[in-house]
Design a protein around this nucleic acid. Structure first.
Lengths: 229, 229
DNA sequence: AAATATAGTGTCACTAGGACACTATGTCAA
DNA sequence: TTGACATAGTGTCCTAGTGACACTATATTT
């Protein structure tokens, strides 16, 4: 291995776009950068692989998320690699971006205790100083999440273990930013066969809503049709 | 930057699964490895980023593919990152895998002149010695290609510029390994609005087949339903 | 001219989602 | 107590895109 290899190796990092839905608004976990470059700007939670700690890049993403949220996300999937000379002032860089989902309730209290980690509505990101190309990464993650919401049930991962259909519907509508038919959602819940019912629950004035939860061994399936756009 | 950073940086490579369809069989471009590890085994075309040559990882994939095929693929997309301590005897490694499509005719003659590059039917891969976890990567790429074939027209990228509906149908059936309805395909060709007609052509005994080609500015769209599985 | 092969169309059935009226069951205020 | 209202959940018809498959069209071959 020549010494030039050292210089020419690109920086490799792992970043995650952690989504949740709170009050019918899609939000992203952002971290205020304490170091250069882009010191003081908001960036995605992430960092370098630690070969001693991480079996693979999934573990890196989980470790970095746990550091900020104190827990593991309900869903984690690779988004895309972003690379190039321009995206980091330190030189050629390669970032593996993940996107992830979590229930707001699961991390809300922990977030408050963490210095400079914050849920930011995706619609308000443009008002902030965002580090690197992270705004672009978030936008792609949002598109992927929207698309996947049209043909799968992944939005359940933005909810606590027990949830009502009304809550699931609200989360879906927050993600795709369009209303959907309650009836269509119920048909899919039945067809997917991955949910089970439990007790009852009441919310803001109205009939009791059935509580659902994911079956323990449930695999998220893909429907063969999209919901209408 | 500490000296330990040097040691602990993972190997980062870019590999591509280049598919084509020849004689109704889905094939992958494999390269016989001339160096350790896995010397003599078959592996995917790929290698390290060259920061001086590559603007980004897409360019790395294209450059490595051009070295083996003499041309650019018709389609190229990121598949997934594979990482871990176990997958490479040299240590912790990270590979960004792409998958790509090309017309057999476009590279057939060049392949023959290249030492140890070869189209291998995906069904015959298990009979060979495959380096690293490349077999697993190819399998995932195949699944992604199959899935995408159900809701898009990407299989056209396995064909030359001009092609008949019969050829497109054959390519699709080779990819998903199921027969499809000619009528369904024609409906999608019309609906997609990305194809245009040209002259005529005859093949093995039968009525002339209309030749189609992709419109110059065509964007591959996704249909809202899958073909039946 | 008939057999055969491939190209392309007409048409009906099926399926899953969209629309929307309707029923069910809770809260709250007069 | 009762009626207005809010949310939960159902019944039913409409629609669009695909599957199935018989049918027509046009070439080659014998």
């Amino acid at each position: 291995m020549k010494s030039t290899d050292f210089i020419k190796k690109p920086l490799f990092t792992v970043d995650s776009v952690l989504f949740t839905v709170q009050d019918n608004v899609l939000k992203v976990l952002m971290v205020k950068r304490a170091e250069a470059p882009y010191r003081g700007a908001w960036g995605l939670p992430g960092g370098f692989i630690d070969i001693d700690l991480d079996q693979n890049t999934d573990m890196t993403a989980r470790r970095k998320l746990a550091a900020k949220t104190g827990s593991a996300p309900n869903y984690l999937e690779q988004l895309q690699v972003f690379s190039g000379l321009e995206r980091d002032p330190r030189g050629f860089s390669v970032t593996l971006a993940y996107y992830a989902l979590v229930a707001y309730q699961a991390v809300a209290s922990h977030i408050e205790t963490v210095e400079m980690a914050c849920w930011i509505p995706v619609s308000e990101l443009t008002e902030l100083a965002i580090a690197f190309d992270h705004l672009q990464i978030i936008e792609l993650a949002r598109q992927r999440l929207q698309q996947k919401t049209l043909y799968s049930m992944i939005p359940v991962f933005c909810l606590p273990q027990q949830f009502t259909i009304g809550q699931l519907m609200a989360v879906i509508e927050a993600i795709i930013e369009k209303p959907i038919q309650r009836k269509s959602l119920m048909r899919r819940i039945e067809a997917s066969e991955i949910f089970e019912v439990s007790n009852e629950k009441t919310t803001s004035g109205g009939r009791f809503a059935q509580l659902y939860s994911l079956k323990p061994d449930a695999n998220i399936i893909n429907f063969e049709r999209n919901l209408s756009v």
